[in-house]
Design a protein around this nucleic acid. Sequence first.
DNA 1: ACATATTTGCTGAACACTCATTCAAAATAT
DNA 2: ATATTTTGAATGAGTGTTCAGCAAATATGT
Lengths: 232, 232
Amino acid sequence: MHLRLKKNSTAVRMKLTSAAQDATDTEKRGRKASKETRRQQLIEATIDSLAKRGYSETTLADVADGAGLSRGIVNFHFESKEKLLIATLQYMADEYAANWGAALDKAGDEAAAQLWALVACDFDRKICTKRKLAAWCAFWGEAKSRPTYQALCGARDVKYQEIFLALCQKLKDEGGYAYEPEGMTLALCASMEGLWLRLMMGDGLTREKAHAAAVEYLLVAFPRHFTREGPK
Amino acid sequence: MHLRLKKNSTAVRMKLTSAAQDATDTEKRGRKASKETRRQQLIEATIDSLAKRGYSETTLADVADGAGLSRGIVNFHFESKEKLLIATLQYMADEYAANWGAALDKAGDEAAAQLWALVACDFDRKICTKRKLAAWCAFWGEAKSRPTYQALCGARDVKYQEIFLALCQKLKDEGGYAYEPEGMTLALCASMEGLWLRLMMGDGLTREKAHAAAVEYLLVAFPRHFTREGPK
DNA sequence: ACATATTTGCTGAACACTCATTCAAAATAT
DNA sequence: ATATTTTGAATGAGTGTTCAGCAAATATGT
């Protein structure tokens, strides 16, 4: 089917001028993208619902309504509710990983600068929304009894924490600190996750305050490397 | 649960046989306590179910089965599922508060000893079970969209953190540390919650390792007050 | 160029199933 | 005998899933 379609549109393209060729291309892409666009749209609606109603109250009807589409739509684009939720979690995990990956690339070669960047990007505007934190937390709440969720949440942690550990170890060597690196790293990562939890709970805590608390941790742990304004 | 059932029927039998006085006593207590006992029993079964199946999969049928009782029982002793869940959360919150309250009493007057005790009791055998952590996390996951849960989870934090803040401030004065106390306290509390989260996720993390990580934090933050073995 | 056939994305009603809740009846205690 | 506690079947609301069919876009035949 797909092959035939491609053959046909190639044939059409050849008949048309070069300007129209572009148009056909985008059209084709648009058509092909349509499916991806819908999925995206439904995933966003799912995050909305998770944030607004919580995991247990999120229904397919609510997701469909949120996307402005009809009831059966999810089972058309995703096979089941379960698959939709997994795709949503996957999407968030990918976004999260991409974010700190990019931050790490931009940070340069200094271990201190890299660590600072990693901590900072956890409290980035794009990632650290109430909406998304709420969605994360919804999945965390179910993760213990669902291996798939656990894997996706865990995969995030493993790589992230490996890098953290390596950085902490490097800083320890550079600064002659006395702590035990594994415990230190664990406590630091846990602290940031805990801050997320609190942000989501929505006491008066703001993103800035949470970030400041994490920085305070960095200051105390690596006094020779950081000031409140950044790495030395 | 089965044991309790058996106990009841044993009590019944005792009434029929010899020791009438004893039997009447236990019976009276049994009757008056019976309602409380059933509630307790159902609450325990609820925690079991939350830990095993997660929030969204926890059904009244499952709770009743877990308690070895019949289907309609929850709506007799609690008015609704919602009320059962709230009572369960309340129960856990009370237990948690009682635990750190007792630990604080036992710790003496030194601020350092008190802080050490508070951190330690978060990783106590009684409190820090996988079962209970899972139940806590289930509630956290739903808390954002349920004011009642949020209030009960939050109430825990508020008092707890007030004390933490006071202790950190005191240690800062004593030790001449340079950090900003609010941020420090926030990061510390968040770290312990994050460690709970990870314990529950069940990577290879053990209670002891998590506790050690928290201690590592204490060491770094208050080097003049603590060694790995305890407060100086 | 026009008509027809096919594909594709989507709809919404129907269906099957789960689950909280109710309640009449039974069991048990007083 | 009365009150209390427990049972378990019945109820009904809610929800995920299915599917026949619609409409627009696209391909094919003339």
